[in-house]
Nucleic acid binder design. Sequence first.
DNA 1: CGTTCTCTTGAATCCATTCAATACGAGTGG
DNA 2: CCACTCGTATTGAATGGATTCAAGAGAACG
Lengths: 243, 243
Amino acid sequence: MQVKDTAFARKLGAFVALSDAELDILSAMHGRRRTFPAGRDMVHEGQVNRSAYVLAAGWVCSYKTLPDGGRQIVDFQIPGDFLGLRSVLFRTADHNIEPVTRVEASEVQFSDLFEGFAQSPRLATAVLWAASRDEAMVVEHLVGIGRRNAQERTAHFLLELGARLTLVGLATPRGYACPLSQYLLADALGLSAVHVNRVLREFREAGLVTFQKGRVEIHDLAGLVALADFDVAYLDHDGPLLK
Amino acid sequence: MQVKDTAFARKLGAFVALSDAELDILSAMHGRRRTFPAGRDMVHEGQVNRSAYVLAAGWVCSYKTLPDGGRQIVDFQIPGDFLGLRSVLFRTADHNIEPVTRVEASEVQFSDLFEGFAQSPRLATAVLWAASRDEAMVVEHLVGIGRRNAQERTAHFLLELGARLTLVGLATPRGYACPLSQYLLADALGLSAVHVNRVLREFREAGLVTFQKGRVEIHDLAGLVALADFDVAYLDHDGPLLK
DNA sequence: CGTTCTCTTGAATCCATTCAATACGAGTGG
DNA sequence: CCACTCGTATTGAATGGATTCAAGAGAACG
C-alpha cells in the first residue's frame, strides 16, 4: 500500500513536509487493516489498549458515559483521522469509541509509533501537531457547549464538519453526506434529541440548511457562518509550517 | 538551575522515566525566566507566537471570547503546567492566556523543543503524553458542561483542581488556596456568576465545601466525590509507562 | 407485516439566566 | 478620616431556553 496517498499522510503533511524516507517510516507504522461493524464499540472505557487506529473509511464517535445513563460525544472521526491515541498513551482508555457506520481502519501499535519517533523527530512533531489540532477541535466544541445557544451550536457543528470533510474531499460548499442521526447529534451538542429536531426545522424553514436522509444541504452558507460566528482558524490548515 | 526538581520535570517523569541526559536536554529547553502581572494577557488570540511557557509560580487561564462579549475559560494552569503549546505548533494562537495572579514562567522556544525531540524520542513521547493529558482534562470539562448540572459541574471542578494541586504539593484532602473569583469560576463552568454563587451557598449549607476568601475548605470529600461522580482515572498518574 | 429506529410535534415543567438591588472590603484621593 | 470608587459577593423575582413527557407518523429491516 502506498501510504503517501492516504488521508493520514496528507493530514500530517499539512504541518510537516514529509520526505519519502519519512513516508516509508509512516508506512511501516501502519499495521493490518481491520473492519468494524457499526454500533459495537471498538474501544471501551477502562480497557487496556495497546493499539490506535487510522481511519480509512467510515465514521466513528468518541464518547464518555455518565452514571445517569446519558452520554457526551466528544468528537466524530472521519476518514484520515487518527483515533485512540490517548487510549494508547494512557494505560487504559479514558473514553469509548463507537463506529457510526461500518469502518475500515489500520492498526497502529504503540511500539511502532515510538520507533517511528526515534527515526524521525519531524514525524514526532507532526503527530504532536495532529494531537494538538484534535485538542483545538475539542476546545472549540467546549466553547460552543459552554457559551453558544442551541442554534449557534448546531450551525457551528455543521460548518466544522463541512470544513473537515472538505479537507479529505468528502464535501463541497453545497453540502455533504452525513450518516449521523439526530440522537447522535444531540449527544454531541449537549442537547436533547427533541430540541435538535426543532433547531433543524428552524434552519430548514429559514432556508439555511436541510439535514435529511443522510445529507446536509447548505442553502445559505454566508447566513450559517454569520449565525455560528464560524472561523476556520482553529483548524489550522494553511500548509506546512516545518519545511 | 536544576531542572530535575521542577514541577515540569516531575510531571513528564510521571509518564516517561527520564535519564540524567534527558533531564539535561530538558534543562537546555528552558529559556529565560519571565514574570507577568495579573490580568494582562500573556498570549492573545490571533497573535503570531513562537514561544511556549512552563509555569513556575502563579495561576493562569486559557480562554476564548465570543462576539457577544462572553467568554469561555477552557482550563486553568497551575505551577508545573505547560502552556501555549498549541499557539506554538500552530502559526497563530487560537486562544488567549491570561494570568489570574502574578506569574513566573520559563520560556520555551519551538526550535529548542524540536531539537530536544531530535536528541531524545523519549522526550518527544513524554511531551506528547503531556499534551494528551491536557486534552483529557479538556474532554472531561466538555463532558461536564455538556451533561452535568450546575452542582455536579462545580463539585467536579473543585475536585479536579484539588487533585491537580495535590500532585504539585499545593493541596491536601482538607483543602487548598484558590485565587479564583466567582466570575472566573462562572466563565469556566459555563454558568452565570450569580448561579455559581447560589451553588456555592448550597454547598456551604450542605456542609460539603466552603469556598471563601481565596480558600477551598473541603468538609465532606466523600460527599463531594459522590455528587460529582468524580474519578481521577483521566488524570492518569500511576507512574512511568515507558521505563 | 410487525418490530424497531428515527423523525416529528405539542404541552408542561424546570433549571439557569437576566434584571435588580444590597452589602462588603480594598484602595485612592481630598 | 471620610467620601467615593471599583471589584466581588449575595439574594430575590421574573423570564426564558431547553428538557421531559407523551404521542404519532415514516422508513427500514428481518
